[in-house]
């Protein structure tokens, strides 16, 4: 955008916009490049992991039947030809059919996506709402007793495996106290054409336990990042200068401190967000949550190659998009960072 060290000049506006456009085009090309490489890697990986035909045909199938199945699936072609067919139909919007369901693979995934995304969103909001204030507190009072308790708790959050936490939560809240359901997604309602359980009371009732399970590790990481950032920022002169102006401790911490400590927190937030959407598999399995992570596991068991490939492509796309958004957020936080 503008030159660093110069004041914004109205005459610069035009060049700013063309800079911006150039940046967006560059990012788009980068994205496509990443996706293409991912498609190559995923496709090759899949080709080396056994023959899916045997997972599909009946156990007593004849050689003829196996050959026929292979032809129908296009697996009799050479690898480059298979890839060409795959990538050219991909570009035309055809993401292939599930071997198992005989339905378009993409539709299969997208159908389950809202369930995963809503659970992840609840988990991430929960993580941020808890982690940021506690992290700020622990960073501002590094030697306090409460800070030590918070840090010990965050260590547990990082080191306890999700499946174990999930089972403990189910045992305690579902089996023992009986206040939350142990599994499944609740009633859904439709918002903007998306079916989500976040609009029904019953849906929220079901989502709490899996979302808490999913959020703990992220919460712990974000908390520790926030604390480390705040401890670093606390030493800066502008913090003391703000206090010398007469600002309250709270204002100094949140208005002056937190924003400066936020860049690494946002980075980790983005990575965790992508990670949870893509691989909430374990939590979804424990809570029988009908999300896309569970579909991935099922597809791997059934060697449903097209679903796996599309799934991984979609995950790559999600990461690339989140990464781009994180870069945009950087520029909102720090005026010294520009999109170039």
């Amino acid at each position: 955008m503008g030159k660093a060290g110069a004041f914004p000049d109205p005459a610069d506006k035009k060049s700013q916009y063309s800079d911006m456009l150039g940046y967006l085009i560059k990012r788009l090309i980068q994205m496509l490049l990443v996706l293409w490489i991912v498609s190559l890697v995923v496709f090759l990986m899949m080709s080396f992991t056994g023959d899916p035909v045997f997972m599909i045909v009946p156990i007593d199938a004849t050689d003829d039947q196996i050959q026929q199945a292979r032809r129908i699936l296009g697996l009799d072609q050479s690898l480059p030809v298979q890839y060409w067919i795959f990538i050219s139909s991909l570009v035309q919007g055809d993401f292939g059919q599930s071997y198992v369901f005989r339905q378009p693979a993409l539709a299969l995934i997208l159908e389950r996506m809202p369930a995963t995304v809503e659970m992840v969103l609840v988990a991430m909001v929960l993580a941020v709402v808890v982690a940021i204030p506690l992290g700020v507190y622990a960073g501002a009072n590094p030697n306090g007793r409460l800070s030590r308790i918070i840090m010990a708790g965050s260590l547990l959050g990082i080191s306890l495996p999700g499946f174990w936490v999930g089972m403990v939560l189910i045992y305690f809240f579902a089996v023992h106290l009986g206040i939350f359901p142990s599994s499944g997604r609740g009633e859904t309602g439709e918002v903007f054409g998306v079916r989500t359980s976040l609009v029904t009371w019953n849906g929220w009732h079901h989502i709490i336990l899996p979302a808490v399970t999913l959020s703990l590790a992220t919460m712990a990481i974000l908390l520790r990042m926030t604390r480390a950032g705040m401890m670093e920022v606390a030493r800066q002169d502008y913090m003391k200068f703000a206090r010398a102006k007469g600002a309250t401790r709270q204002d100094v911490l949140y208005k002056h401190g937190l924003k400066n400590a936020l860049i690494p927190v946002v980075t980790i937030f983005g990575l965790q967000l992508g990670d949870l959407i893509a691989f909430a598999t374990i939590t979804e399995t424990i809570f029988s949550w009908p999300g896309m992570g569970k579909l991935l596991i099922d597809s791997i068991y059934r060697a449903d190659r097209p679903v796996i490939v599309v799934y991984l492509m979609l995950v790559a796309l999600i990461f690339v998009v989140i990464n781009f958004l994180v870069d945009l957020v950087y520029t909102l936080i720090d005026p010294r960072i520009t999109l170039k």
């Binding site: 002169d237 502008y238 206090r243 010398a244 102006k245 007469g246 400066n260």
Partner: peptide, 20 residues
């Protein structure tokens, strides 16, 4: 602070908040 007594720091590069 700021009203009766105010302070000017040594290094102007670090005493202003870079994000405001």
């Amino acid at each position: 602070r700021g009203r009766e007594i105010s302070m000017v720091f040594q290094d102007p590069m670090t005493s202003l908040n870079p994000l405001h």
